[in-house]
């Protein structure tokens, strides 16, 4: 997406960070050091064997394209949103490089 190849180690940190990736609020996954993971969304274990990198990337960028009623936010879409707080306006949840890092990490979860 950004041109630079993703770094799985950085991606893992983003996924685990509850202020950045927010992933573990809803998903659970192979993070033995992280207590209290979410039970709302599918387990991230094995996602790398269920989906290709391209499929993972698309689901992060704009999951609504696969399921319009999904609760998963679009991590790289800034239009079509209502009442976004001023400090988050026109900003994607994650940058292109961060998304590459997350994709690279999730692809390792075979």
């Amino acid at each position: 997406m950004s041109g630079a190849k993703g770094d799985p180690a950085r991606g893992r940190a983003i996924v685990a960070n509850r202020q950045a990736g927010l992933c573990l609020l809803c998903h659970s996954g192979p993070f033995p050091e992280e207590r209290f993971q979410g039970s709302i969304a599918p387990d991230l274990n094995g996602i790398g064997s269920r989906l290709s990198e391209g499929q993972i990337r698309l689901r992060i960028v704009d999951p609504g394209r696969f399921n319009p009623s999904t609760i998963m936010p679009a991590y790289f879409r800034t239009e079509g949103l209502a009442r976004v707080a001023p400090s988050f306006k026109e900003k994607p949840i994650l940058s292109a490089q961060q998304i590459e890092d997350v994709v690279a990490f999730l692809a390792t979860l075979k």
Partner: peptide, 23 residues
């Protein structure tokens, strides 16, 4: 649906009530 996370009240408090957000 509202905000950068694009969520409505209904999605969590009706559709997912009883589930766990983080812990």
């Amino acid at each position: 649906r509202q905000g950068q996370l694009n969520l409505s009240c209904t999605q969590c408090h009706v559709g997912l009530a009883g589930n766990k957000l983080a812990g």
